[in-house]
């Protein structure tokens, strides 16, 4: 059972290669897996550098989104005024397509930061952060309100104050929710980074995988496009599995899983 997805994937790859060869499909339309691996082998360093550049943006954005999302969720949970003020805007950010926001971000960041290298980096990070922010924010907010009402009663019964309730009950109760949000946002940060790269081009900043895909596309280097795509999806899988493992590790240590 465990090997089923691997076996299926392998079969699909073999079938793909067979169809491409049997049908004489030119590699600039659909390359076979072998051609894709060859494209990667032809220039692994440039592809891996591009991957690293995209990952740098992804992880900075994820970290910023984690801090901002958790802080704003926290502010909302301690103040009804903050909740009323923040919540609608969070939803606005969530529902507005990031592709439509990036051009604005480019203009604003370009106005504030003169170095093109740094301004591109900031543009990408800001855009990816906007995408990654919401799941962490929404999950943490839900987690902060997730403790059972009876436990709240218990704290009241023993004269527990607002901050005690927060520190001893609501924050620890929110941790699993935060970690779930972090895992969802990890994948989204990558998506956000790639989308922003597509819109922003690469400016002065070392170019990421989206730029590699675009550039290879212009040159009809379709196998290279596929190789970049495979790297992207492997990176997404690794981020998802890694954050899942982190969540399990933390929760097991806390006796919650």
């Amino acid at each position: 059972m465990k090997a089923a997805p691997l076996l299926f994937g392998l079969l699909a790859l073999i079938a793909w290669e067979a169809v491409v060869r049997a049908g004489n499909v030119p590699p600039y339309i659909v390359p076979g897996p072998v051609a894709i691996v060859a494209a990667f082998a032809a220039g692994p360093l440039s592809l891996l550098t591009a991957l690293a550049s995209t990952l740098v943006v992804t992880f900075i954005a994820l970290a910023v989104a984690a801090v901002l999302g958790a802080l704003l969720a926290f502010a909302m949970s301690v103040s009804r005024l903050a909740q009323a003020a923040i919540q609608p805007w969070a939803v606005v950010l969530q529902v507005t397509p990031i592709v439509a926001i990036v051009p604005l971000v480019i203009i604003w960041v370009g106005y504030l930061v003169t170095s093109p290298r740094i301004s591109t980096l900031i543009t990408l990070v800001v855009s990816a952060t906007i995408v990654a922010f919401f799941p962490i924010f929404a999950n943490t907010a839900e987690g902060l309100a997730s403790a059972p009402a009876e436990l709240g009663d218990l704290f009241r019964l023993y004269g527990g104050g607002r901050w005690q309730t927060l520190a001893l009950l609501r924050l620890p109760a929110a941790l699993p929710y935060f970690l779930t949000g972090l895992r969802i946002s990890g994948g989204l940060a990558l998506v956000g980074a790639v989308v922003a790269e597509f819109v922003a081009g690469s400016g002065g900043f070392a170019s990421g995988l989206a730029y590699t895909i675009q550039e290879a596309g212009f040159r009809l280097q379709v196998p290279r496009m596929f190789a970049a795509l495979v790297l992207l999806s492997l990176a997404g899988i690794a981020i998802n599995l890694g954050l899942g493992a982190l969540a399990r590790f933390v929760l097991r240590r806390r006796g919650m899983a």
Binding site: E150, L151, D153, L154, L157, Y158, L168, P172, R254, G255
Partner: peptide
């Protein structure tokens, strides 16, 4: 506070805290 103890239908313990820390809670809050 502390003059009345309350026991709910569910044990309503803090899942991340040991038995000891759960029992410590009322005293800690004071």
């Amino acid at each position: 506070p502390g003059d009345a103890g309350f026991v709910f239908q569910d044990a309503t313990l803090l899942p991340w805290a040991t038995a000891e820390d759960n029992v410590f809670l009322p005293l800690r809050l004071r």
